Structures are given as C-alpha cells and as structure tokens.
Simulated scan of single mutants.
Amino acid sequence: MAGSKGRGVRSGAPVDTCSTLAFRVVLNSPQAAVLAKLKRGDVLAVQLDPRVEGGVNAVLGNEPAGAVTGARKNSLVTCLRNGYTFEAEVIDLTGGMVQVDVRPA
C-alpha cells in the first residue's frame, strides 16, 4: 500500500525506535591488544557476536574491542537483527576502560 504508515516497518522494534536509539556505555571484557590501537574519537562498528547468543561487540576492523552491555542492549540486538547498523564512538579511554557513544550509523 503506497502511503501506508506501516510501510518499511520491520518486525521487532519500530523503525523510529531503532533510528533514534543512542546511549553511552563502558565496554565490557575489553581486549587489550585492540585498546592499544584506539584513541578518543575513533568510530567502531557495532555487530552481533556470532559466538554468543544475544552478544554485541564494538569492533575495530574485524577485531572486537569489547562487549556492549547495559539496559538498552536488548533493543540494540533487536535493531541489529532487523538490519539496522550502529557505530560506537570512543569518548574516553582510561586505563583498560573504554567509554563509547552507541548510535545509528
């Protein structure tokens, strides 16, 4: 149906939810070898972890920098499964802790 409000809506989270989903999080299980390559302002891809059901990683190239967790992770997983893409900008690097802003790519 042309003009239908439902057009373009994918199963799971509504389009408007996925297109506006953004949050700040500290990466869990940071990978030291990848962290050594990062600097503030770097943008990482956000991808489903094929090895962990419901897992999400922030990735530099093809190397996971750390896991994205937190209260909004389930919404993020739904959006990723429905074809939306996200990125994570490095906001702060302190020791082994990496804080990122997750947002639609």
Rank of each mutant, 00 (worst) to 15 (best):
M1T: 10
A2K: 13
G3M: 09
S4W: 09
K5A: 12
R7A: 09
V9Y: 13
S11L: 15
G12A: 15
G12I: 11
G12D: 05
G12C: 07
A13D: 09
A13C: 12
P14G: 14
V15W: 03
D16L: 07
T17K: 10
C18P: 00
C18F: 02
S19M: 14
T20A: 09
R24W: 08
V25Y: 07
V25A: 02
V26Y: 06
N28W: 00
N28Q: 10
N28R: 13
P30T: 12
P30V: 08
Q31S: 06
Q31K: 03
Q31C: 02
A32L: 12
A33P: 00
L35T: 05
K37L: 11
L38V: 03
L38T: 05
L38E: 04
K39V: 06
R40D: 09
R40P: 01
R40H: 14
R40Y: 08
R40S: 01
G41L: 06
D42E: 09
Q47S: 12
L48Q: 11
L48P: 06
D49W: 04
D49L: 04
P50K: 05
P50C: 04
P50M: 06
R51G: 11
R51N: 10
R51C: 03
E53Q: 10
G54L: 01
N57H: 09
N57T: 02
N57G: 03
A58R: 12
V59T: 05
V59K: 01
L60Q: 01
E63Y: 11
A65G: 02
A65H: 03
A67R: 09
V68D: 01
T69S: 15
T69R: 15
G70P: 14
G70C: 10
G70D: 06
G70S: 11
A71M: 09
K73M: 15
N74E: 14
S75K: 15
L76S: 01
L76C: 08
V77A: 11
V77K: 04
T78S: 14
T78M: 06
C79I: 11
L80D: 07
R81P: 12
G83F: 07
Y84K: 05
Y84E: 00
T85K: 15
T85V: 13
T85I: 11
E89N: 02
E89D: 03
V90L: 06
D92F: 05
L93G: 04
L93H: 01
L93E: 02
L93A: 07
T94Y: 10
T94C: 14
G95T: 04
G96R: 13
M97Q: 15
V98L: 13
V98N: 00
Q99C: 04
V100A: 02
V100W: 01
D101S: 07
D101H: 06
D101C: 12
D101Y: 06
V102H: 00
V102R: 01
R103D: 01
R103V: 08
A105Q: 07
A105D: 11
